[in-house]
Design a binder for these strands. Structure first.
Lengths: 334, 334
DNA sequence: TTGAAAGCGCTACCAT
DNA sequence: ATGGTAGCGCTTTCAA
């Protein structure tokens, strides 16, 4: 009942291991008759080649690593769905790693990747810090594709959305709706998308001559309880913002909770907009205005990029940006 | 710059490959001095043993497969978080597979697992069909642990929640709130948890003498648009239900959408309760009453069970049920 | 205390 | 058209 291998097939058929191997890979130097016999038996015994022996021999693993900060965020769930849709068709396995937004964890994950995977798709934990771990991987001929959170310090394919532009538009939307004091709530300014979204938001505020308390930034963390207190403090202050733009959906949910607890009404007291891919956004109380990223498509594009690299045996990828636009969906929260 | 292996270390140190290997595994038959030298160089060159060579030799992969129906459901995202928290500490890799609720896909995934992983955690796509693919895997000495959606046809550890009891309580809650005509909306009665939830719901309705149109079941599918129409039809019928109990969160979201589109008010026209792990449930309009499963804990328990099996080299797991209770969180939708 | 060699399962080179 | 053999990187006998 143990795993059937070439040796067993060969023995059963009175052939050599090499003949069986070639028959299964359809080599033209094997007679049709032998091929038939071999394939029939292989099918019958449900022969599956040992992936580790293959990897050891070919130095290809038919596996890629996907490194993301967390899973309980619809963006990442959808992105992985997209990645999987491409990769499973191409016969690749997906090794999933969570960095939990921790740079150290990310480094130790990346350092163990060589020999284990053919390529890496990564959404970075933090990006302002050094990227020597990724550079080392690239020097070892493992192609890397960034998605969503990217680093400009490494030349490779980057699949992103138009964060600056979308954030600008979302902010303009808040302004149109009459917001006087707009606050941008960031998750971590070590994250490229966070920076860009803030940049787009502040640019709009500057263009419309918002200054001082009309134009604020609050830095949150990865701890939900802490964030709750920070946002509560912000919304309890004497000249509190009347509009909030949060970087990620988790912060918007916290903002909703704070508003509920403080008795602030959305949108009359506070307008809220966020980047999010939550399917239930339209059903919140009130329905939440979102900038919706094409998460599934981003995953697909990133997967396709790494696949192209692997198929063409290209180690050095073009320093190319693939930009898939986000959509502003206006709802009752603004 | 290519991968450093034992041979290179040996050459550099003028030692044999076997000595280097033993030094790194801290064998007592190697002098302290040699160990020091070897370890120093290994560290310096960032030596990482080739995982495929290890697997080939030891027949252990230090990898487990996680097979789930989908990712865009908070339950699975949280469960994987839990699994990862245990497995990454134990030094295991996670290979993630999505069955997309398709029995055929699940079979073909499972058939390629032998030799690739040491163990399998699975939440089945459908369970009434045959499970010969899993039985075959078990016969090949690969331990399997079920979580959430399990099959009683296979003797092994099953980590589940108390679906029947929770569904009974949730239904009782609807009855207490005055619901007259209660409908259970199922995703697929090929799924064990769906059956159990329905069973709990119907048992409560029977105990409270609900009959005929007071006690209905609607079978949905995996297609959201189809479900929308089915639910719309149900809620447009002359003697429509005044309470809905959905099996999974996606169906509750669809129900909310239908109610909004039909102008039905929740909870006065229709009460809604669902199994769900959505963080935003409390912020929906109105806040959604949920039966919340301990998804993270279920993931952890399943991971711990497979880990115990692997550590103790047990192929045959006890036919044990680990039951982690769900919690009914009453909110405004009822 | 160290080294040589076999073998995990596979493919490719060189024979025949 | 088929078989023998080497070698991918590693651990583990067996010898020295």
């Amino acid at each position: 009942m143990s795993k059937v291998n070439l040796k067993q097939l060969a023995k059963e058929l009175n052939l050599s291991v090499s003949t069986v191997s070639r028959a299964l890979s359809n080599s033209h130097e094997i007679s049709e008759e032998t091929k038939q016999k071999v394939k029939y038996l292989a099918e019958k015994l449900n022969y599956q080649p040992n992936p580790h022996a293959m990897s050891l021999r070919s130095q290809k693993t038919k596996t890629i690593a996907v490194i993301i900060p967390e899973l309980s965020n619809n963006f990442f769930a959808l992105a992985i769905d997209g990645i999987e849709s491409i990769m499973q068709t191409a016969g690749y396995q997906l090794l999933i790693y969570l960095s939990h937004e921790d740079q150290q964890k990310e480094v130790s994950i990346v350092n163990k990747l060589e020999g284990r995977v053919d390529g890496v798709l990564i959404c970075m934990a933090t990006e302002t810090h050094d990227i020597s771990h990724l550079r080392a991987l690239k020097e070892k001929k493992i192609p890397i594709v960034f998605f969503d959170r990217v680093s400009n310090k490494l030349n490779t394919v980057k699949v992103i959305t138009n964060d600056i532009e979308s954030a600008y538009k979302a902010t303009e939307h808040l302004i149109e709706r009459g917001a006087q004091r707009i606050a941008y709530i960031s998750l971590s300014l070590n994250i490229s998308v966070d920076q860009k979204r803030m940049q787009g938001c502040l640019k709009a505020l500057e263009d419309y001559k918002y200054t001082g308390e009309q134009k604020r930034v609050l830095s949150c963390t990865t701890n939900d309880d802490e964030n709750y207190n920070l946002i509560k403090k912000l919304l309890s202050s004497p000249n509190r913002p009347d509009a909030i733009f949060t970087c990620v959906e988790r912060l918007a949910i916290t903002t909703y909770t704070v508003c509920r607890d403080l008795g602030l009404s959305i949108p009359s007291d506070v307008k809220v907009v966020t980047f999010s891919n939550m399917p239930a956004a339209a059903l919140l109380s009130p329905p939440l205005t979102t900038v919706s990223q094409p998460a599934y498509e981003i995953g697909k594009a990133a997967a396709q990029a790494i696949l192209d690299a692997l198929n063409r045996n290209m180690v050095e990828l073009n320093d190319e940006k693939i930009i898939l636009p986000s959509v502003l969906i206006k709802r009752a929260s603004t």
